[in-house]
């Protein structure tokens, strides 16, 4: 197996039940890897354990078993090497926008002067289009602007990797689109490695290099890994002209609607190798009969390394 930038090996999480008896694990035997500069999205139904996985990667939560190794070192706790964008933006309301970002930057570079910190942070705030609002309090911002501050804060510490938990979940479609574009721009400019949770299939296709599909919990698994084979310079406005787009989209939606629920008992699960979940490239598949026929597990495009 090649050495990934980040590798997740045999991750399992059990939460104790309220009465003290052991619950079934939320997820079990999770393996995947992320390369440097790669943008990975994870999709799965609510409650399958996406946030838990992200928190383990962030070091905020401990896995029941398994390890996460980033850049050759085991993840044992939170670190400035991994910037986190929280679903609920988590800005500190008593600080200004600049104050929030500066608080992060000051943690990273305690020796920097205030002027240097402010200048550094302003650059990142301008990058997300908030140059005009740096002295406002978060309460004076719209939901989308707050989320952008959260993104700027995570970028400003120049982490080795970025973890985003449904960063746009609470936003309306229009705002979401704008910020996706912004994120895409910043990620491409900095070639950041990103792990992101989303519920939005289009968002995943636009942003990701590969999409991890999780089956439903408890005992959730990585059902397959979908590579997004469309050219990297795709844009939100153009991408649905690419014939690949609909193939990928149908594949993802079909998984979410049909296959994720019944995954546990299906043929795919029997053939499933947790260490090497099937990697598929639906975008490159020639048009074929809809995947609703009986030979459902699409193992044709498996291209495991």
């Amino acid at each position: 197996m090649t050495q990934h930038f980040l590798s997740v090996e045999g991750l399992q999480k059990v939460y104790p039940a309220a009465d003290g008896k052991p619950n079934p694990p939320v997820f079990d035997n999770i393996h995947f890897g992320i390369e440097r500069g790669e943008f990975v999205c994870i999709i799965g139904h609510s409650g399958c354990g996406k946030t838990t996985i992200l928190n383990v990667l962030a070091g905020l939560e401990e896995a029941s078993s398994g390890v996460v190794i980033m850049d050759g070192k085991e993840v044992k706790g939170p670190s400035l090497d991994r910037g986190v964008v929280f679903q609920s933006h988590a800005l500190m309301p008593w600080m200004t926008v600049l104050g929030n970002v500066a608080f992060a930057a000051k943690s990273r570079w305690p020796e920097w002067s205030k002027a240097k910190i402010d200048e550094h942070c302003t650059t990142y705030l301008e990058m997300v289009g908030l140059g005009h609002a740096i002295h406002k309090k978060p309460a004076e911002l719209s939901g989308g602007m707050k989320q952008r501050v959260g993104i700027a804060r995570a970028f400003a510490i120049e982490p080795k990797m970025l973890l985003l938990d449904e960063p746009f979940g609470a936003l309306d479609a229009l705002t979401r689109g704008t910020i996706q574009d912004e994120l895409l721009k910043v990620v491409q400019a900095t070639s950041q490695t990103v792990f992101m949770i989303t519920h939005d299939v289009d968002e995943a296709i636009l942003l990701a290099d590969k999409v991890i599909l999780m089956s439903n919990g408890p005992l959730a698994k990585i059902a397959e890994i979908v590579e997004i084979t469309m050219p990297r310079n795709r844009t939100r406005a153009e991408m649905h002209h690419d014939p690949q787009f609909y193939r990928i989209r149908n594949h993802l939606v079909d998984f979410l609607v049909n296959r994720s629920k019944s995954y546990a008992g299906s043929d795919a699960a029997v053939l499933h190798d947790a260490r090497h979940p099937p990697v598929v490239r639906p975008g490159l598949a020639a048009d074929e009969p809809p995947p609703s026929d009986s030979t459902r597990p699409i193992l044709k495009q498996v291209v495991n390394q």
Binding site: L60, P78, L80, V84, W94
Partner: peptide, 25 residues
């Protein structure tokens, strides 16, 4: 919890966390 987690991911030292995060909150 979120604010504490922000401080944790930023590896903020305990005293700084007490005065700049918990106290104002």
């Amino acid at each position: 919890r979120d604010w504490i987690n922000v401080a944790r991911t930023l590896e903020v030292k305990p005293l700084r966390k007490a005065f700049q995060v918990i106290l104002p909150a």
